[in-house]
Design a protein around this nucleic acid. Structure first.
Lengths: 234, 234
DNA sequence: GGGCGGACTATACGCGCGTATAGTCAGTTG
DNA sequence: CAACTGACTATACGCGCGTATAGTCCGCCC
């Protein structure tokens, strides 16, 4: 155990902490901290302290901070697809789909991947693309009222889903409960079910709005206040 | 004009660049860079260079980087409410609501605010809360099929909307067009209109899933693979 | 049992950051 | 004209970062 600075805060919920190899402890600490503060907001010294090792050991095992991130990405993705496989095995979605997500471990991985998307990881970006492709395929089969741009529909669907998690801090504040806890996640999922199963907008209203769109495509649409991104102000 | 390092890249789309006061140029450059790379990813030296002034002048006018951020927040919010007022004046929403958003200036401000939400600005966090309150009120009046948790419904709605913009990089990649351009934004809006005006999920399926939720609220739900956030792996 | 390799720590280097401060220069005011 | 003010630059300080490197300790194999 690293004694450089007295280690006070151990991952409390983690029973087998001492049993893990240092390499695994570093990776887990990194996932936790990257998920919480992002890549830039986390220092290798932070990670090392959380893992109970010296900063140098991190470099010994992973080579660099960037390489550590890639290892975390790979690990998170591997575990996620493993769960996904278990729940899609026989044909279609065996379970209700989002329910295994309510497990604390899954929630942490979701949080990590979500943050990783914002941090610009190429690995999770590829995951996003896969999900869009899957969504487009799904929409093509079970298609509800998609006007024709199924690609955009799928991209928006996946973007909203992951984006909602990206806004977890604000959604949690509005709900008074952390949406990355089982309780909060289920409450959020309930509202999402509402949103997805009942139309929110009047189709007539939408049609009218859609008719108003084409003229806006001009290079400089004739709209409200302000000329260019930089006008004088307060 | 600052000559410390030869200034090559000026904001090209900005005709009245030279006419702006240095203070305004700094603020505009900051909004642009904060929107693009976030607060942490932007240095005061970057901002100063973009604005064509010395780094010291930034401190002279704004005091600190954090104070500059707050000035940007205030400016962005002020301009946004000004536009919002113009489009809600007489009673309800006069226009189609999201259409003034298609203006380039608005898109930049949206991008800024979205990023600011992720960067933890208290000002934009308050804006988020306001929007949730407004959404809850709206949903209460024109209520579609909300089961009862209108608060969560509103929070999810606003979270998805802003979160979708937070994922703009990935959505843009999927669509092959930047969603913060007028063209891309309108395409995205079209898909959103589809999504909002037609139910995506079978209400029967949703009801079944909802019935499966309560048992999961136990502290450690009996779900898939993995024990705790940290098990040995790849 | 002697050497070899890998896990691990201590220490330091160089860089870029936000910030501080002293100084220059033009315009204004009595 | 002298004094003052405020916009602006030059320069430097200190800190914390990612990274590099030298060294220690211990189990393993011939």
């Amino acid at each position: 155990m690293y004694k450089g600075v007295r280690v006070m805060a151990r991952p409390v919920g983690d029973p087998a902490f001492e049993d893990l190899t240092a390499r695994a402890r570093i990776r887990d600490a990194a996932i936790r901290l990257f998920a919480e503060r992002g890549m830039d907001g986390t220092t290798v010294r932070d990670i090392a302290q959380q893992a109970g090792v010296s900063p140098g050991l991190l470099r010994h095992h992973f080579g660099s901070k960037e390489a550590l991130r890639e290892a975390c990405d790979a690990y998170a993705l591997e575990r996620l697809v493993k769960v996904k496989e278990e729940f899609i095995v026989d044909g279609e979605v065996a379970n209700a789909g989002f329910l295994p997500s309510a497990h604390p471990t899954m929630l942490l991985l979701y949080k990590y991947v979500t943050r990783s998307l914002l941090d610009g990881s190429t690995g999770t970006a590829a995951l996003f693309d896969d999900m869009v492709a899957m969504a487009e395929q799904w929409v093509g089969k079970h298609a509800p009222g998609v006007t024709g741009d199924s690609r955009a529909y799928a991209a928006v669907l996946v973007g909203m889903q992951s984006g909602l998690l990206a806004m977890h801090e604000h959604v949690s504040r509005a709900l008074g409960v952390d949406v990355f806890t089982t309780e909060g996640y289920l409450r959020m999922a309930g509202a999402m079910a509402d949103l997805y199963s009942h139309p929110l907008l009047d189709p007539e209203f939408v049609a009218k709005a859609r008719r108003a769109m084409p003229p806006l495509r001009a290079p400089n649409p004739p709209t409200a206040a302000g000329t260019e991104p930089a006008a004088e102000g307060a």
